[in-house]
Design a binder for these strands. Structure first.
Lengths: 118, 118
DNA sequence: CGCGTACATCGATGAGTGTCAATATTGACC
DNA sequence: GGTCAATATTGACACTCATCGATGTACGCG
């Protein structure tokens, strides 16, 4: 239940310019992107995404991420869960370690929706 | 005090590809964009931006915006204030009416930070 | 001046959420 | 099996925030 709830890709991204700027967003459309934008609307989570994306191989294990913040381990774990459930982060378990990777397509979709072409 | 607190334009947007995806965002950088992303992290506000942008002349008066939602007038006024103070909406008073317009450059900056090139 | 309309501000309230300490789960290793 | 390290989950608390009704301000008009 964490595959992808991104149904905005087919229509929105296909539109030539800027979806959000050309025609009024419906309530349903707005509700659909909210999990993504809300997930990014936190300094810790935004940095988590950035750190993970900029890591070697595009993935990072939780242990490394914990060290990057002055926050407790459960807090980081919670933020990663939010990002994962929003569909922004992929989760892979290797041995005792868990690696997260950024779904760049999803992030690109959000960006396209906001600023699109213009 | 509502000109532009967007100092991420000079450096970030100038970078070739995707700012957030190439190198780890600093805490200061993350804190700087947060007002913008947080402002967009609400279905009502996201739709407000969209409706305003898609309106004739790129602006809309509050009276029109009020009719577009099943919310009280103070609530809409509050959301518009948030968007305005975040720097996303311009505010112009003409007679008794107040018109809001989207600062597309600001929105484009946020989009560029997120999805950038890749 | 007085009245009505358009919009903003204030105060209160209920829902949501970021954070932590404590505890549970999972896997590696001896 | 027992123990330790890496993550996740739980429960609680403080704080933020979306929303409303009531009230305030500003402007146009007769």
């Amino acid at each position: 239940m964490s595959k992808s709830q991104l149904t905005l890709t087919p229509v929105e991204t296909a539109a030539c310019c800027s979806p959000l700027l050309r025609e009024p967003l419906s309530w349903a459309q707005a509700e659909q992107v909210m999990p993504l934008i809300k997930a990014l609307a936190d300094p810790v989570r935004l940095r988590l995404v950035s750190i993970v994306a900029a890591s070697e191989g595009g993935e990072a294990c939780v242990c490394d991420l914990n060290d990057a913040f002055d926050l407790s381990q459960p807090t980081i774990s919670h933020h990663l869960k939010v990002l994962h459930e929003a569909g922004l982060l992929d989760r892979t378990k290797r041995g005792v370690w868990v690696y997260y990777a950024v779904r760049r397509e999803v992030l690109a979709d959000v960006a396209a929706l906001l600023g699109g072409g213009a």
